[in-house]
Design a protein around this nucleic acid. Sequence first.
DNA 1: AATGAATGAGTATTCATTCAT
DNA 2: TATGAATGAATACTCATTCAT
Lengths: 217, 217, 217, 217
Amino acid sequence: MKEAPEDLNDGLSRKERERSRHRQDILAAGEKIFAQKGYFNATIEEIAREAEFSVGTIYNFFSNKETLYQEIIRSIIETCYEDFQREIVPEPDPVLAVRLLNRLRIRQFERHQGLIHVVLENMPSGRFNPELMLSPEYQQYYESYFENLCAICARGRDQGIFSNEEPLLLALTLEGLLNTFAAYWLKKRAGGAITPEHIAILDRVTLRALGCEVRHP
Amino acid sequence: MKEAPEDLNDGLSRKERERSRHRQDILAAGEKIFAQKGYFNATIEEIAREAEFSVGTIYNFFSNKETLYQEIIRSIIETCYEDFQREIVPEPDPVLAVRLLNRLRIRQFERHQGLIHVVLENMPSGRFNPELMLSPEYQQYYESYFENLCAICARGRDQGIFSNEEPLLLALTLEGLLNTFAAYWLKKRAGGAITPEHIAILDRVTLRALGCEVRHP
Amino acid sequence: MKEAPEDLNDGLSRKERERSRHRQDILAAGEKIFAQKGYFNATIEEIAREAEFSVGTIYNFFSNKETLYQEIIRSIIETCYEDFQREIVPEPDPVLAVRLLNRLRIRQFERHQGLIHVVLENMPSGRFNPELMLSPEYQQYYESYFENLCAICARGRDQGIFSNEEPLLLALTLEGLLNTFAAYWLKKRAGGAITPEHIAILDRVTLRALGCEVRHP
Amino acid sequence: MKEAPEDLNDGLSRKERERSRHRQDILAAGEKIFAQKGYFNATIEEIAREAEFSVGTIYNFFSNKETLYQEIIRSIIETCYEDFQREIVPEPDPVLAVRLLNRLRIRQFERHQGLIHVVLENMPSGRFNPELMLSPEYQQYYESYFENLCAICARGRDQGIFSNEEPLLLALTLEGLLNTFAAYWLKKRAGGAITPEHIAILDRVTLRALGCEVRHP
DNA sequence: AATGAATGAGTATTCATTCAT
DNA sequence: TATGAATGAATACTCATTCAT
């Protein structure tokens, strides 16, 4: 009878579910430590301690430090990407899409604090950083993301709402402002969170930069 | 009379000049290797090889790897800062100042490729990166830079040329666009340099984002 | 029932006992190499080779060379101190106590050959040696040792057996003679061990110096 | 005319005298630094700084660090030996000779503080120290010193003043007490020097240990 | 002779990775 | 599977010694 509810768990046995949970624990511990210390200053031992596993167990799940790191980043990228696909892409109104993206990005910055810069630096619009080695397979996410972002901008432009510019330029504009303001506020905030006022500013700034006159700011 | 030619060399003796040159050579080698590999993957031995000195000589000039790195970054920051003070700050016309800044930043990106991200991430508008440890003394450059940038934006706003926004927001806008576009073009370029067309786009995008209607640049 | 045999091993598991044995092996190897070469000429690599472990393993047990050295010296000091407390202190007869101390010290010299000088030079009666850095925590052993030694001398004096001198002076006298003769014989001996004749001489010399007339020892 | 006085300078030219003086300066600087830090922690650079010469100049006078050290120790040994030959050996009265030796040794301890232990550890009665490598040529000084010391003790014994023991044992006794008390007082003294009272104690202790009854202590 | 910059062999230490239990 | 002790390659850093000026 104990086995019955497993049908609800993606068809995984108890063993499999446990293994999957352990894997998640290690990823979470890794994200925490890498975010605190950076890739080179983090040690497997410390991650193991944080995950409450032994060093050897880490290696039962991930073949080496590099792989563990890439998996963590991959999961961040995937989560960010999926959020974008789910929350932003289906929105037909370009202005609303931008507003939603502003909110989403702020959330992503807040949630992934110490590692978001790795995601952003590997974007086409991110600064080249020789230390941050992302395997090329992540490129597909970035390309798809940018295509969708361009599509939104193209729609805005074609509807005469945004400037009559190449969509890619509009997308870069959006990215640049979004990331710069979010980074600035998160660095400055002394314990305080991002407020609705911040969001309002971000909406105003991004929309104006896209060439869209904003009424009541 | 032996002393005469020295008057032209900052009053330095040949020995002193040679020492200064060697120091520069090491800094140049360090910049090259750190830019290629990043701080942690660069080794003193490789830097020494690049500089055509022995390992020990590196340590005669810099007390450790960290110090060498900080000195390299410091010199980049200082150079960037001085260029800004000399070329941009004295310009009374806000629009022209922005155009000049666009050109300057592109040059800085091109010149310092692999390390410019360290400078930018330590700006108030840069992303938090636990790996990029700059000693707090550089803060003064950043503060002064931002103050000047805000002053330019304030002038533009007060003259009714830029949007009626807080100068700090205008400055962040400018920074965000500048760095995003420069990074994008430098990552994409397949050997090709930044062209005047790129600069024209940058002028158009930044000025529009600042709220300034541009006719035909 | 599996637990039964462990009760006989200080309650340590096999793993723990093995770890403890390895630690002892490293300490022994360290004592041997440090004794042969001295602190600065000994290398961790050589100690590791002697202990039949890798370099890294040494560092799993001791955080650095200095600590390893101090632990070795500490264990010698503790052993010497405990022997003294067990064998000498309880002896009520001052003359017999001195005789026993003579024998004990000779044994200690023989057993710790190359490192006994570190112990002795950190005694209040030892020569100042800037190279021999013992952490101050060992002071307590020395103080306690000297107090006990003084107590023995005081008893001998009060019983009219030793000279009517300050006990401290008697203790220093004893120390000086003990160490000087032991050192001399151990340096000179060409393979030969310390003989009963040597001990007899030591008894005669020390007791006479303490002011105690010896008949036929 | 300036050259005339040189006849009084061992027939050395000004050049030669200057060179000799520089050599002495380096030896003095070396003694100071080696005494402070010990052989391994002292650096040639620091000695050069103390001597107010460059590193290269040190090597013009001494072929390497080891040699410089040995020369310093040699000069201490020679000085100590010569003082002994001059002040103690000619004294016919054994008791007075011991008293004079006590005073001399205290002076030597005071003068050579940080390096006297090197001299003493290389005596036949000194503790074996693997770190202190004295070239075997110094052995002659030690042998001659001990022979003379034994001769004094033999005289005292033959005159019925000292115990009827082997002179070598008497000599070791003397050495042991002398060095132990001197070391103790020098370690303990809080700025205060060795006083006449200390000397009186030393006389009493050494003479009693040699079997010589002392009247008014 | 005096200088001090350059050299590079020598070593302590770290830490990702392995593997026997 | 989980463990954690053992491994050893990699590297920063030191400092005695050399040598061109």
